[in-house]
Write a protein that binds this DNA or RNA. Sequence first.
DNA 1: AATTTGACAATGT
DNA 2: GACATTGCCAAAT
Length: 95
Amino acid sequence: MDEELHERIREVIAGVPVGKVATYGDIASIAGAPSPRMVGRVLSEDGHDLPWQRILRANGTPAPHLAHRQLELLRAEGVLADGQRVNLRTYRWRP
DNA sequence: AATTTGACAATGT
DNA sequence: GACATTGCCAAAT
């Protein structure tokens, strides 16, 4: 049910390996979410224990309010960002 | 009950 | 690359 969706989204996010990243759209598609907004909503509400820093927007740029922190965390994990943008072609997670 | 808002994406101009 | 439009769904006001 709706809780499962919530859990699936968390599951997929948790499944992203270190050193890789995924986009909201990818998570939504893999988890079966009706819209990528659900992913963002889950993270904002319940993403405190998840690797939210590995989730980027479709163009490789992180969410505006987190950008600075997120890039820092990613850098610590080995994901190098070009200024504000991450090379999805290099770091995008593919199942 | 109706509108707005929000960790978004795809397409067109 | 910037800007506008459309689709999307749940929670807050």
